[in-house]
Amino acid sequence: MNKGSVKTNAILHFDESGFTGNNLLHKRQKIFCYASLECPHDEAKKITEHIIAKYHIQNGEIKGGKLLKGVRGKRAVDEIIQYFKGRFKVSVSDKKYALAGKFFEYIFEPAISSVNSTFYNINFHRFISNMLHLELFVRGAMAEEIFEDFENLMRTGDFEGLKVLFSASKDKGISPVLEQICDFAIHNKESVIEELDGYAGEGAGKWVLDLTNTALFSLLAEWGQEYDQLTAYCDQSKPLNEDQEIFKAMINREDKKFTHIAGIDSPLTFNLKEPLNLVDSKVVHGVQLADAVAAAFAYACDQDNQDEYAVKWRGMIEEHLIFGSVFQDYDHLDLSKIEVQRNAILLQELTERSKKGMSLTEGIVEYIQFITIALRETPLELQK
């Protein structure tokens, strides 16, 4: 589609694959995909009935997860994908990395919120998130316990019974960077408590780690760049049932606003014709088709899957994946880069300030400018 020519109204269908709610450490469901499909109802009904009849799909409903268990089902899903090529968008996330991103948002950001844009613009959040993700795979147990503690905290809002997240005792095998991250958490616990007070574990807060709302919002914002107005049909979802306030604020919203972070402009608004339609996929055929697309790209983004369909669909990801999809990128940990050296020094500075009870934000912009200039003149010497 040509983004230069905005069209009138889009009928959009949404569904997900890999939903595990607040449990982002789920062992078997590693990838979350939320898919969106532009298609009028009559066309969706026609294609759905064609696929069901051609591939002898039982129960009269397309379920992507079930279809991917067999070769015939994969052919059915592939036919859907090829038919709608260019008419769907997906948001895909590695759930462990998404959890690492949430860690930064709820453990680090409350203490630096007054100047948070400064940290986002130098990709400090990505440095922390990627470091946590790497620790989870390299060191295992200690990082896993920290992540489990964080997940339990966000699910319940209860600080009691946490094993290691805010504990002064450390595992002997802990890395220096992970120790700094833990020390930061310990000494900024009050900021975290204030941030979560009356939110986590209550109402919409029960789903604070879930990726559904964020993915749906990002997808709608992307479609809003192509269409004047959007009508959204979503499969029934507990997180969406709990909280739709941000989507209601977009009804008949005609202004175009963007956020600018780390050199990238991202849309913040879109125009919904009506409130989200939370529907039964058996009744609204387009949602069944979106389910198939979501299942396919969750399957393709799991590197354990290497069959011809996984490889084929991976080749289509760049065309259909939206900005805001969440995957690790270890380039943000490459210490040969000055910006990564700066973020490592900045973490050490924030941790030391936290231990001493000093302000984390006072003079921090000037400090960042200072170390940036210093590193450009004399980069850190790395051991070979």
Rank of each mutant, 00 (worst) to 15 (best):
E318F: 03
K256M: 06
G86P: 14
K46A: 14
E148R: 15
I122T: 07
F104K: 00
S167R: 10
M316Y: 08
L68S: 01
K46L: 12
E381H: 08
M131H: 14
I261Y: 10
R376T: 06
A143P: 07
A44H: 09
L347W: 00
R253D: 07
S5V: 15
Q328K: 14
I251L: 06
N271C: 15
L289A: 03
D171E: 07
Y309L: 02
I193E: 15
R139K: 12
H26W: 07
V92S: 13
A232H: 01
F84D: 07
M154I: 09
E144V: 12
Q225G: 13
N22Q: 10
Y309T: 01
A53R: 15
L321A: 06
N152V: 00
A168Q: 12
K356A: 14
L276W: 09
S354W: 01
N277E: 08
G198S: 13
L276K: 10
K46I: 09
L272T: 03
E254C: 08
T361P: 02
K85H: 13
P275W: 02
L321T: 00
H320M: 06
T214W: 12
K7R: 15
T8V: 11
E179G: 14
Y106K: 12
P40T: 10
Q58C: 04
H56A: 14
Y299G: 03
I317M: 15
N2M: 02
L67R: 08
G101W: 00
L380M: 13
K102Y: 12
E105D: 13
T214K: 14
T214C: 06
T361S: 07
S281Y: 04
G101Q: 07
H260T: 08
L268R: 12
G140T: 10
F103W: 15
F217H: 05
I174A: 05
Q236G: 09
L230Y: 08
Q288S: 07
F137V: 02
S175Y: 02
K170T: 06
I146E: 00
Q58A: 14
T156I: 05
E43Y: 00
D255L: 05
Y106I: 06
Q288C: 11
I317Y: 07
F127A: 01
G173A: 10
G65H: 12
A290N: 03
K172M: 04
D183I: 08
K256D: 10
Y330A: 09
K74Y: 04
E339G: 04
L347E: 00
S129H: 03
G64S: 05
T156W: 10
T214E: 13
Q369D: 12
E202L: 13
Y55G: 11
S113P: 01
L178Y: 03
I47H: 06
I128T: 04
F166Q: 07
D331W: 12
Q341V: 09
T118R: 02
F147E: 03
L37G: 08
D197Q: 14
S36M: 11
E109I: 07
M358R: 00
L136I: 05
E79W: 03
H13V: 01
H50W: 04
S266K: 08
E274H: 09
K170I: 03
K74F: 04
H285D: 10
I81K: 01
